[in-house]
Structures are given as structure tokens and as C-alpha cells.
Simulated assay, not measured.
Amino acid sequence: MPSQPRIAMVAGEASGDLLASLLLGGMRGLWPDLQAFGIGGPQMASQGFDAWWPSDRLAVHGYSVELLRRLVELVRIRHQLRARLLAAPPSVFIGVDAPDFNLALETDLRAAGTRTVHFVCPSIWAWRADRVEKIRRAADHVLCIFPFEPALLAKHGIAATYVGHPLAAVIPREPDRAAARARLGLPQEGPVLAILPGSRSAEVQYITPAFFKAAALIRKALPAIKMIVPAVPALQERITACARDCGMQDALQIVTGQSHTVLAACDVTLIASGTATLEAALFKRPMVIGYRMHPVSWRLMRRRQLQPWVGLPNILCQDFVVPELIQDAATPEALAAAVLEWLAACQSRSDRVTALQKRFAALHDILARNTSELASDAIRQIIEA
């Protein structure tokens, strides 16, 4: 094993940046002087990662239309990265999520003799089951964040390790609501709604207007409510403009980042489907999941959907424990009504909220592992092999 391994990584979007930064922290426990480089974001950079391209360059939305618009740029970046890694092969390549980008790159690198690890199993159990063969060709090993995935991959001859979900280790089992509200300048009493419209550019286009119009209806019903929006820095200006267009610029507190603090502070969240919904579940917060995309993308995705649920909390619980309002169902009126139901349940301390919190606490226990250590040990074994 090299004393200072050279580790290439690609992480796309804010969620991948977070997962990769936690993995980097664990690997530095084994190799304090490791070199890590590739495509990453600010949280990876805080771990000493050398980002040749920023992770937000990989952010795409939907299944076909939006991806086609970005295809030329994505292919060019992948071609340049592949050439650079083939010219100076790393000790291991770790693709963090972003399967459309990473699996093809991993396949080429593996064929050339570079060991490859894919961190976060693509959701072959939810949709895109055809990706199984791509994973088998691409990855020497898959690091799985959900406990049922290794057995599923083993049926297809793919080596995998369950490492738990990194977020379950960093999110406290009992979030400090009072401290979070104080940090954000929110009152200790009274309802707080967190609005998380997503971290991708097209999500701002398709989702944010419906969310903010729903927020206007919620405010009309509950004038004293506080509403806070954690915005990805690159999208904050557009989110602020959307709030202004919806006449909500004075009603919404828009902050840069701080999504975990916002989730800890809120009573309920209106949230776009994605990793953030799992974060909200780990914070034990009632939520309404909404999502909208280009109509063509939606039709294509629905044909490949293997389960009745879209949101991660519902998929993991195998039940509609929180409402999902997707595409045409995600009207401002429907979103507002679902949020107001949760807010009323929180105010009355109903059994519905208690039952949900118990489900989410059990989920937290299942997902909480020493992910950094388990993942780093699996990567060490791959490098030593």
C-alpha cells in the first residue's frame, strides 16, 4: 500500500460534496498526507481536496431534456478528466453518486487497470434497474448507504459493503431546536416552516415558484408563521428573485446554506424530493415532499419507476409516512394544505407527529454506523489488493 495514496474523486452537487467530505475525513485518519483531487465542492476543499472542476458543473435536472442541454459540456469534462487520470493513474478512483457521469468514467479507468469504488449505490431498487450491468462493469466495489443494498448487488455478482449513511452519524438524534432558532435569529415560540426547494438550477425554475406560492397561502392562514429558506450560494440570487416575483421577499428569510440549522429550527418542512428529505427525517421533522420537472422528463421517469414512493423517507419506511405531491399534484394549494395539516398536528402535539418521530428515530438507528471508518477500511482493502 502506498504511504501517501493518490485518490481521485468525483462528486456532483451539494449532497455528493457533503458525502465525499465525510469520506475524506475518514481517509485522512488512515493517510494524513493523502493526495485527493478531481471534481468536488467547497466541503471537500475544506478537507484539502484539489478540485480541478467544481462539483456544481455536474448538476443536472431531470432525465432527458435538461441533460441533453448540458451533454456537450459534461462529455468534454469527462473526456478531459479521463485523459488526465489515464496519464497519471491514481491509487483508486472513487465516484461519489452522480452515476450518469461516474459509471462510464469508472468503466474506462477500470479497463485500464485503475481500481474503482462507487460510493452510494444507484437506486436500482427504485428505478433504472438497467443500471445493474453498468455497475458490474464499472466498480470493483460499491459502498452502500442503505442496509438492503449489498444483498441485492450480490445477486448480480457485485462486491459491496454496507457502511451506513454518513448523515446519520453527524445529525444528532435529538436536535437542539432552541439553539438552532437562536442561531438564525428566530423566536423561540411560534411555528417555523423550512422551505427547501432543491440545490439544482432547474429545480429553482420548476419547483421554487410553486413552493413560494404555497408559502403565501400558508402565511395567509397563519400570519405569525416564520418561514426560512436555506439557499445554495450559487442559486441564492435566483431564489431571492423568485421570492420577489411571488411577492414574498419580505415574508421569507433566505439564508446562505445552513440547511441543517434550518431543519433543526423548524417545526415542519416543505421540501424537494432528494437527499434533503432523508436529512429532514434524521432531524425527525414532519415534511411535505414536492417535486416538479420538465413534462417530458417526468413521463420518462415514471415509466422506469419501480416503487410507489418517490421520497427517501417513504421508500425506506416502505410506507407513505409523509405526503408526496409530485408534478401536476404539486400545486400551491395542495402543498399549502398538506403543510397546514402538519403544522396543526404539531401545535396540538398529536399522535400523528409522535408516531412519525418514532419511525424516523428507528430509521436513524438503522443508518447510524461509523461510515468514515467502514468506508475507509473498504477502500484500504481495495488499494492493497
Score class of each variant (00 low, 15 high):
residue 323 P to V: 11
residue 67 L to G: 01
residue 201 S to V: 03
residue 140 D to A: 09
residue 102 N to P: 00
residue 145 I to A: 03
residue 22 L to N: 04
residue 17 D to F: 08
residue 351 D to G: 09
residue 234 A to I: 13
residue 257 G to Q: 13
residue 147 P to S: 12
residue 253 Q to E: 08
residue 58 L to Q: 05
residue 246 C to D: 10
residue 48 G to S: 02
residue 262 V to E: 12
residue 261 T to D: 15
residue 96 V to K: 02
residue 43 Q to L: 15
residue 25 G to V: 00
residue 49 F to L: 10
residue 254 I to N: 03
residue 107 T to D: 11
residue 86 L to W: 05
residue 177 R to Q: 14
residue 212 F to G: 06
residue 323 P to H: 13
residue 77 I to L: 15
residue 282 L to V: 04
residue 109 L to Y: 08
residue 155 K to L: 07
residue 90 P to I: 03
residue 111 A to V: 09
residue 142 V to D: 10
residue 326 I to E: 08
residue 282 L to I: 06
residue 123 S to P: 06
residue 343 L to A: 03
residue 296 V to L: 15
residue 259 S to I: 04
residue 39 I to P: 10
residue 280 A to D: 10
residue 69 R to C: 02
residue 311 G to E: 06
residue 1 M to Y: 01
residue 223 P to Y: 08
residue 343 L to S: 01
residue 142 V to F: 08
residue 102 N to E: 07
residue 152 L to S: 03
residue 364 H to T: 11
residue 187 P to K: 07
residue 8 A to I: 03
residue 131 R to Y: 10
residue 39 I to Q: 07
residue 241 A to K: 06
residue 5 P to M: 05
residue 111 A to N: 03
residue 212 F to E: 11
residue 62 G to T: 02
residue 137 R to S: 09
residue 139 A to W: 04
residue 101 F to Y: 13
residue 365 D to W: 07
residue 167 L to Y: 08
residue 217 L to W: 04
residue 277 T to C: 13
residue 223 P to A: 12
residue 287 M to W: 12
residue 153 L to N: 06
residue 134 K to W: 05
residue 212 F to A: 06
residue 268 V to S: 11
residue 255 V to A: 01
residue 204 V to A: 14
residue 81 L to S: 01
residue 334 A to H: 15
residue 315 I to D: 00
residue 46 S to E: 14
residue 230 P to I: 12
